[in-house]
């Protein structure tokens, strides 16, 4: 899980062109949107596309839990793993 969190941090820095930020600056529990890192709604869409491409997972945009899944790097990592488990089940 820690490896996946590190990988997600690099992905976030890369797709959002966060030139002044390194993975060490992003705490796994820190909010990604609004407060914390300060990403916005367009970034959420971008992140969804990137996750779909990299991990080949389905993201249900009507899911009530989506805000929670995207809240932090830690939650994202759990979400990616759970979606991959659904696919391989």
């Amino acid at each position: 899980m820690e490896n996946l969190e590190a990988e997600l941090k690099l992905l976030i820095i890369d797709i959002f062109e966060l030139e002044d930020i390194s993975p060490a600056n992003i705490a796994s529990e820190e909010p990604l949107f609004g407060a914390g890192l300060g990403l916005d709604s367009i970034d959420a869409l971008e992140l969804g596309v990137a996750l779909k491409k990299k991990y080949n997972i389905h993201i249900d945009t009507h899911s009530a839990n989506l805000v929670e899944h995207f809240a932090s790097v830690k939650n994202l990592a759990h979400f990616v793993v759970s979606q991959q488990e659904i696919k391989t089940a």
Partner: peptide, 9 residues
């Protein structure tokens, strides 16, 4: 292929 939402905006 997928389209980048931010590039689109």
């Amino acid at each position: 292929q997928g389209v980048s939402p931010s590039r689109f905006s």
